Simulated scan of single mutants.
Amino acid sequence: MDLHDWPGHGLTDAELDVAYNVRGKAGEELFGHHMRRYRALSDEAVDGLPGHRGVVYDEASGEALDVWGVEAGRLRPVFVFVHGGYWRALSRADSAFMARMLHGHGVATVVPDYTLAPAATLEEIVRQVRASVAWVHRHGPGHGLDPGRIVVGGSSAGGHLTGMTMVGGWQEALGLPADVVKAAMPFSGLFDIRPLVRVYVNEWLGLDGARAARLSPELLPAPRRCPAVVAVAADDGDGFLEQSRRFQRHWGPAAELMVVPDRDHFDVVLDLADETSAVSRALLGLIRAL
Rank of each mutant, 00 (worst) to 15 (best):
D43E: 00
D43K: 02
D43Q: 02
E44C: 11
E44T: 15
A45V: 05
A45M: 08
A45I: 05
V46Q: 01
V46I: 07
D47A: 15
D47L: 14
G48W: 03
L49G: 03
L49V: 02
L49D: 02
L49S: 02
P50G: 05
P50N: 07
G51H: 08
H52A: 07
R53E: 04
G54W: 04
G54V: 08
G54Q: 07
V56Q: 01
V56F: 04
V56C: 03
Y57T: 00
D58L: 02
D58F: 02
E59Y: 01
A60Y: 03
S61T: 06
S61I: 03
G62P: 07
G62W: 08
E63K: 09
E63W: 06
L65Q: 03
L65T: 09
D66N: 10
D66P: 09
D66H: 07
W68A: 09
W68E: 09
G69P: 06
V70M: 10
V70D: 08
V70I: 14
E71Y: 11
E71C: 11
A72Q: 14
A72V: 12
A72T: 13
G73N: 13
G73K: 13
G73R: 13
G73Y: 12
R74I: 12
R74S: 14
R74G: 11
L75V: 12
L75P: 14
L75S: 14
L75Q: 15
R76V: 12
R76S: 12
P77L: 10
P77C: 10
P77W: 10
